[in-house]
Amino acid sequence: MTPDQLFDEIAVDLAPLGATAGAMFGKRALKAHGKAFACLKGDLLAFRLGDSSPAHAEALALPGAELFDPSGKHRPFKDWVALPDTHAEAWPAYAEKALAALEAGGSVGR
């Protein structure tokens, strides 16, 4: 399954929880209440988990994970963790965690 196909599946699965597909910085994104909580950039799916959350630390500890730098200019968003498609099996769970963090107001800022 390609990253785009998995993104589509996650969007469908999270739609009943209020998630919608949209765009952020010209990339495919998942949003709720007008705010993005996941963003697809090539073979990376980034999640807005909140930089002080256990989910953020857990995701960042995965091999190949990195802070999300959508511009590619070494200005990463501290609240966001990008996971490569080698961790695609974990993408749905992290998308749910990011949506929950957004709903709780726990991931504010970049």
Rank of each mutant, 00 (worst) to 15 (best):
M1V: 12
T2H: 09
L6D: 11
F7P: 04
D8F: 03
D8W: 02
E9T: 13
E9G: 13
I10N: 09
A11G: 13
A11V: 06
V12Y: 09
A15L: 03
A15T: 06
A15H: 07
P16Y: 01
P16I: 03
G18P: 00
G18V: 01
G18F: 02
A19T: 01
A21M: 06
M24P: 01
M24N: 08
F25T: 04
G26Q: 07
G26T: 01
K27R: 12
R28Y: 05
A29E: 01
A29N: 04
K31N: 08
A32D: 08
K35S: 10
A36K: 07
A36M: 15
F37C: 04
A38P: 00
A38M: 03
C39L: 10
C39Y: 03
L40F: 01
G42E: 02
L44K: 14
A46P: 05
A46C: 10
F47Y: 04
R48P: 02
G50K: 00
S53Q: 03
S53A: 08
S53W: 00
P54W: 06
P54Q: 11
P54R: 07
A55H: 02
A55W: 05
H56I: 09
H56S: 10
A57R: 14
A57Q: 15
A59W: 01
L60K: 07
A61H: 05
L62M: 14
L62K: 12
P63C: 11
G64R: 11
G64M: 11
L67C: 13
L67S: 12
D69I: 04
D69N: 06
P70S: 08
S71Y: 10
G72C: 09
K73H: 12
K73W: 05
H74G: 14
R75A: 14
R75Q: 14
R75F: 12
R75G: 12
F77S: 15
F77A: 15
K78Y: 08
D79R: 15
W80Y: 06
V81G: 12
A82Q: 08
P84Q: 09
D85E: 12
D85W: 07
D85F: 09
H87P: 01
H87T: 02
A88H: 01
A88M: 09
A90W: 03
W91L: 07
A93L: 08
A93C: 07
K97L: 14
K97M: 12
L99Q: 10
A100R: 07
A100I: 00
L102V: 04
E103N: 10
A104G: 05
G106T: 04
G106V: 03
G109W: 00
R110A: 14
